[in-house]
Design a protein around this nucleic acid. Structure first.
Lengths: 343, 343
DNA sequence: CTGAAAGCGCTTACAG
DNA sequence: CTGAAAGCGCTTACAG
């Protein structure tokens, strides 16, 4: 590409025989500049194809009007929906989004966060990766006076703004639904327990058993079954038990639930009559499978909106004495074919 | 949030009784600085929790190490995959990604592009929105000496770097496959013809008819059927014809194909025996439907990789005499249940 | 209403 | 190997 000399406010000033100060003021629509010259300046800027250098402007103003987002994966429905939800709001306010993916890798996450600190972003929005539970890098964000908002997968011990789902309640409702549907041996596919969201989902599972006075069967709880493949693997193990489950709550994701469904289909086990299945996240495909999968909607876009609104609400709030806000969004159980026994 | 005074190179210099010049050199790992002082500087920087201000650095260097991406929707599989593919490469090179969504709205697209120009991004990567065919804003990008890479949905008349799919060939293969499968009346659900990709897909459709010497039936071509809803609507119209089609090529997307499948199921029409269905894009759900949907894989992640690599390859290439590169990725027909008549 | 000047935090050509 | 100085393009407190 050929290097193009960009028009600066000095070029405009020179052409008009005035100072850059006035040009700057006019371009910022300051009231303390003559209406006529303002018009002239704007017209000239347009003619010279002037574009403000945001870098310089932000450097001078000590802000960046940029929000950094760190998520495990961009190309996963839940996260891309949250981003879309964030963008919806930030765009209107003239803020930019810098996106980094951690790839579920703690080291890369640390690097992403550091890059964003260097960029002097005004806020970092993060959903932490599944590996590692060292949150020094997030503490570092706070130490630099950068706003930090965690969502979904949060480091609980860090006192920051948080936007989360009520995972306990959602899981409780899902399992209650299965119990009320007459399922007797309800298995749990759980996710990495270092992530609080997965701990909470297990908690909800156990809570439902307690509420209905049903004993928990330890052998029906499968660790670390949070991908389609691991979900399928866990299901095979479960179904080969002397007393196999008659329902499986794939608490980690619909992907995991899909693994369950695949195995059931392959083994000729009828869903929902012989095996009930409940997933999590309301991925778009969960509606399309046959039978469609009962799942939990997390209102991901709304969650993104909430994150962004929280940021703007907290801007300029210098009161550090109040405890950081935690906003909990109630997810919704979506009952579909995979658990409708008497449909 | 409390305002925190950040450590600058001057703070480090002062503490060490040297100049900022040396600090800067040390931090940039320049060879022309004493090894021992370099170590000391780095250690001190670390102690003071120094983070380079990338804004200032970039302003001085006249670059931003940032790439702007404008897509219609973040939360659409194809686009989020492309972004993931871009990020994979740019991340390694220390580049940041600023993401904007145009929401298929031309005005918002223009605004996004302008914001990115203001940000002094080094490159703008774009897949244009479906409405409007005025590309002045893209010309503007070039006029500012910013690299412009178009992908998938491109404005053909603009001479820029492009990464595209061979849509004609892919559609040709898809329709050929249907013809060879014995389907006689193959309908086309087409997308907005102001987007070249949809024109090309239609071209491939027509090309196949020609190659097999099959007459085109105009009434089987349905305009503007590029969402699930519009696909369903078009299908209802088609199936109520005196002579309905026995196959439908939803050239716009798998979403559209899904609409076809829904209608077929609702009307009790058997797929693939009574109606063949072929989609486009290999969305993750297309594998899961019953029957699974024959579709075309665009290698979206690879496409993202290609875009990023193209950028780095062209960096510093000052030769403006050569024509801008166009990289065409050959998509792959994925044959599944919805077209396997004798499976 | 307008100008002159300083400064945001860095980098780098120029001297020594 | 190190320093002094200029400058990237803006904004804004201070004068007038």
């Amino acid at each position: 590409m050929k290097k193009v000399k960009r028009t600066t406010i000095y070029d405009i000033a020179e052409k008009l025989g005035i100072t850059a100060s006035s040009v700057s003021r006019a371009l910022n629509n300051s009231s303390q500049v003559n209406e006529k010259t303002k018009e002239l300046i704007i017209k000239t800027a347009d003619e010279l194809n002037y574009k403000r250098n945001t870098l310089a402007s932000n450097l001078r103003k000590g802000q960046s009007k940029t929000i950094g987002v760190v998520i495990p994966r961009i190309n996963q429905n839940f996260f891309s929906n949250v981003i879309a939800g964030i963008e919806e709001i930030t765009y209107q306010k003239g803020y930019n989004l810098i996106i980094c993916q951690s790839d579920e890798d703690h080291d890369k996450e640390v690097q992403c966060v550091n890059t964003l600190i260097n960029q002097h972003v005004d806020c970092i929005v993060i959903s932490v990766s599944a590996d590692g539970n060292d949150y020094q890098h997030l503490q570092n964000v706070l130490d630099h006076g950068i706003q930090l908002i965690q969502f979904d997968r949060v480091a609980e011990e860090l006192e920051t703004l948080k936007v989360i789902n009520d995972n306990v309640q959602a899981s409780y409702e899902a399992v209650s639904h299965l119990i009320e549907g007459g399922y007797k041996r309800i298995a749990l596919l759980e996710g990495p327990q270092n992530l609080s969201i997965f701990k909470q989902r297990k908690e909800g599972y156990l809570k439902a058993f307690k509420a209905y006075n049903v004993p928990v069967i330890e052998e029906l709880i499968v660790e670390n079954a949070w991908t389609k493949e691991l979900g399928a693997l866990g299901t095979r193990k479960l179904l080969s038990l002397p007393q196999p489950p008659d329902a499986i709550f794939a608490s980690t994701s619909d992907f995991s639930a899909l693994g369950v469904l695949d195995v059931a289909n392959a083994m000729g086990i009828k869903v929902p009559s012989e095996l009930g299945i409940c997933g999590y996240a309301n991925e778009s495909f969960s509606e399309i499978t046959s039978p469609s999968i009962t799942t939990i909607d997390q209102f991901s876009i709304y969650m993104g909106n909430t994150v962004a609104n929280l940021f703007f609400q907290e801007i300029g709030n210098n009161d550090t004495t109040t405890k950081p806000k935690i906003i909990s969004i109630k997810p919704e159980l979506i009952i579909r074919g995979s658990t409708k026994r008497n449909g």
